[in-house]
């Protein structure tokens, strides 16, 4: 059994807004105001094995970015534990901790807001490897030049500033910066979402080339199922802070178990499969401030029944490498039909 490169165990993350002074004073007079808490991630288990490309999909506010940051080690979880190569992050000390930090790098959606506009490319990419002693001062320029060429940027651009590049080129700078510290894991948070389709294809190809060349592992966060299907070995679907389904892309697209996954796949606009009618699922994504009880998806689910309103479904095995969290899993085929028929009436 191989040890996961990074593993989240029962990880939760809450964001609360503390009461301000006026509200605290109001409470002294009996206003009864409470802190507002968002459950961004709610008891998630996720293991990423070396060499794997794991896709994390879901709609805005489902907690996929928060989970990505927790697994990259840049945000501590409120509950639960993140393990790096089997060791808890909180137990790592000194050199070990620094090595872990360098080994997990993030690539963000908008490189314009993550690249310092007042620094040149040479410093943006070269600073971290120099500070961490990966490369000696005099050799930084050659090192950065080899990295930029690897990601498809001309070495003559080293003295330019971020605003002098196009969106796709800036994303390449972000990738070169992540690669500069020789990472094992890249967490890509919507890294191709803002790019035009032909540039997006160039960057996705680059990701796959780099994976082969440097033996990288990816946690690929995206709302775009088409992209995730193409490059990932395993797809994890999140809804309102919880994992609802996980499977290989082929299995997930051919045989989705959770009604939410089914809706996502059905509603994906596609050029190859031209669908002229829309059968959208009803309702809004609920506020993570007050998530519905039981299964978070039940208010929008066409197949919801009484149990879904009270009991949180647990992830159960549907087949090899396929798990989903839905109470329909416990019903036999005939019961499923009956339950659906009842809600239809």
């Amino acid at each position: 059994m191989t040890i996961p490169l990074v593993e989240a165990v029962e990880v939760s993350r809450r964001f609360s807004r503390k009461l301000d002074y006026a509200e605290k004073i109001a409470n002294l007079f009996g206003a009864g105001l409470e802190e507002k808490t968002v459950h961004a991630v709610d008891g998630v288990d996720l293991a990423v094995y070396p060499g794997e490309v794991v896709g994390l999909v879901g709609e805005s506010g489902c907690g996929k970015s928060t989970l990505g940051r927790i697994m990259a080690g840049i945000m501590p979880p409120s509950d639960g534990e993140v393990r790096w190569q089997g060791k808890s992050l909180t137990a790592l000390q000194g050199d070990e901790k620094r090595a872990m930090r360098l080994s997990a790098q993030m690539i963000f959606q908008d490189p314009m807001s993550t690249l310092n506009p007042r620094k040149r490319v040479i410093d943006l990419i070269g600073e971290a490897p120099k500070v961490h002693g990966i490369v000696k001062g005099r050799k930084v320029r050659d090192y950065v030049a080899s990295l930029t060429e690897r990601v498809g940027l001309d070495a003559s651009y080293l003295d330019r500033y971020p605003h002098q590049f196009s969106g796709g080129q800036r994303q390449r700078i972000g990738i070169a910066r992540a690669l500069a510290v020789k990472p094992k894991l890249l967490v890509c948070d919507e890294s191709v979402a803002a790019l035009d389709v032909s540039i997006q294809a160039q960057i996705l190809n680059l990701f796959m080339d780099l994976k082969r060349e440097f033996g990288l592992t990816y946690l690929f966060i995206s709302h775009d199922l088409g992209v995730v299907k193409h490059i990932c070995d395993r797809v994890v679907v999140m809804y309102l802070g919880r994992v609802v389904e996980s499977a290989t892309p082929d299995e997930l697209f051919d045989n989705p178990k959770h009604p939410y996954t089914q809706a996502l796949i059905r509603e994906l606009p596609s050029v190859t499969d031209r669908r002229r009618v829309f059968t959208p699922i009803k309702g809004e994504i609920p506020s993570p401030l007050h998530p519905p009880p039981g299964c978070h998806f039940h208010p929008r689910c066409p197949k919801a029944f009484d149990r879904c309103r009270v009991e949180r479904p647990v992830l159960k095995k549907n087949g090899p490498g396929h798990i989903s969290a839905c109470h329909l899993n416990d019903l036999s085929v005939t019961e499923t039909k009956n339950a659906t028929a009842e809600t239809a009436i």
Partner: peptide, 8 residues
């Protein structure tokens, strides 16, 4: 917009 909302 998200996929399910876009579809609506």
């Amino acid at each position: 917009l998200d996929v399910t909302i876009q579809s609506q």
